[in-house]
Amino acid sequence: MKSDSSDDRSVTAAVRSWIAKPTTTMLLILIGLVVAFSILEPSAFPTVLNLRGTLSDAAILLVLAVGATFVIITAGIDLSVGSILVFSSVVSAKVMEWFGNAGIDAIVVGLLAAVAAGCGWGLVNGILVAKAKIPPFVVTLGTLGAAYGLSLVVSGGLDVRSVPKGLNEFGNDRVAGVPVIAIVAGLITVVAGVVLALTVFGRWTYAIGSNSESARRAGIAVDRQFIAVYTIAGLTAGIGAYLSLARFGTTTIAGNTTTNLQVITAVVIGGTSLFGGKGWMLGTAIGVFIPIVIAKGFIIVGVGPYWQFAAVGVVLILAVFVDQRRRLRAAG
């Protein structure tokens, strides 16, 4: 590293812009929550068991939120991810059933099926948004219903419980004490974060969210970028479906009705702007953990589980409020 004055200046500027990011505020809130719960319940909250549970709970949501971060940076929204997760898990479980539910072949084919199903729905969302020019809210509200309906058709409305034992063991396994699904989710987050921050693909994602017409004039293949981004959201929903099968050993048809809103909440708490063009992956990771830490903390401290929803709502509104204040100050 050179250390001439211009580099010093740019390092200072980088540090200053980091502090100014809404993500930093949310990181401090997350740390504050952890410290507060640890002081209130020093014997129950800061424990390996609780940390492990927190990581397991966060893993699947984090994978979905990674995809949603791309979508929201394009100034879009994806309401269908919970339904895509359900659909992909039903398809995956059925395919594994046909393969006899045993052996590595069933487990591998199940993964492929989940990924393909997720990407398929994502592709549909992307094409409808980019080519048919239907607003993302409407498109994904439609596929939310369609994917959920088709999962009921395929499954007959009953959860598929015959997940391969090996997969279920994998889903509850640990490496060096860390839940495997959390490691998988972490790796996906890191890769996606690198793509977003350091590649042409990431740069174009910000560009189409910032001003899609400007991006088009700059020669960016805007339609293709939108389709790719929604397909990524479908892909992460498919991977989430597979991790969900691995963790619970069953599909969770009725258990994902608010998954989409949890995902959007996490991404927005993490500082990604619903107006598009802004956001980063570390923020999304923090945004996933805040609601989960609140939920765990409230239960452990004895506040009662129902209060968590109210608390998360307050944090969400606070996050957007802080972001807007900062934006106004920057503009003024």
């Binding site: 910000y206 910032s210 001003n211 400007s214 063009g277 802004k278």
Partner: peptide, 11 residues
Amino acid sequence: LSLADTLDPVA
């Protein structure tokens, strides 16, 4: 001007 307002001048 066709600028992407949320990106920096270099981008």
